[in-house]
C-alpha cells in the first residue's frame, strides 16, 4: 500500500504502482487541475510539487511517491507565494486557452520559492520546460516579475 499526502490530506493507494501520479490525481481523485499534455515530461502541463520540488506527474509512478507529500494547483491559493502568482497571472491576463497554465503556475511557484526575485535568465532556466502552445510567454514572464514584486 502506498501512502502519500496530497495538499495536506493523507491518502492511500493500492492500485497499479506503475500508474503515473498524473492519472491518480485526475482519474481517481478527480483533481483535474493538473493537466495531461504529452505524457513524456516534455511539456510541463502536469507539473505538481513533490516534497517541494516541481515534478512532471505524467512520468512519476505511484511507487515513487510512497511517503511523499504532493501539492497541486488546487491548493496553490493556500500558499502565500501561490496566491501571489495566481493574482499576478490574473493581473497580467496571462492565460489564453489556459490548458498549460496549471503547470506554468506550479513551475513559477517553485521558482519564486527558491528565488524571490528571479532574473529573466532564471525564468528561462526554470520555466522553459513548460510549453504554452498559445505562446502566452510574454505575459507569463511579466506575471512572474509582478508576483516577485508582490511577495517582497
Amino acid at each position: 500500500m502506498i501512502k502519500l499526502t496530497i495538499n495536506g490530506q493523507p491518502q492511500t493507494f493500492e492500485g497499479d504502482a506503475e500508474m503515473p501520479l498524473l492519472w491518480y490525481l485526475r482519474d481517481e481523485k478527480d483533481m483535474t487541475g493538473t493537466k495531461f499534455g504529452c505524457g513524456m515530461a516534455l511539456c510541463g502541463a502536469c507539473t505538481v510539487h513533490i516534497d517541494g520540488r516541481p515534478a512532471r506527474s505524467c512520468m512519476t509512478p505511484m511507487r515513487s511517491v510512497d511517503g511523499a507529500s504532493i501539492s497541486t494547483i488546487e491548493a496553490a491559493e493556500e500558499d502565500r507565494i501561490g496566491a501571489a502568482v495566481q493574482a499576478a497571472w490574473i493581473e497580467e491576463q496571462a492565460p489564453q486557452c489556459g490548458y498549460c497554465q496549471s503547470g506554468q503556475v506550479m513551475s513559477a511557484i517553485a521558482l519564486l520559492k527558491e528565488k524571490p526575485s528571479p532574473t529573466d535568465e532564471d525564468i528561462d532556466a526554470a520555466m522553459s520546460g513548460n510549453i504554452c502552445r498559445c505562446a502566452a510567454y510574454p505575459r507569463i514572464r511579466q506575471a512572474i516579475h509582478r508576483a516577485a514584486r508582490e511577495i517582497k
Binding site: 482519474d27 495566481q86 496571462a94
Partner: peptide, 21 residues
C-alpha cells in the same frame, strides 16, 4: 473587462473535455 475565463484557468477549475468524468 478582464478575461472572464482566466480566474478558473489559474486555479485549475476550468473544465476542458479532458477533465470531464
Amino acid at each position: 473587462m478582464m478575461r472572464v475565463d482566466i480566474p478558473d484557468k489559474v486555479n485549475g477549475k476550468a473544465i476542458f473535455t479532458q477533465d470531464i468524468k
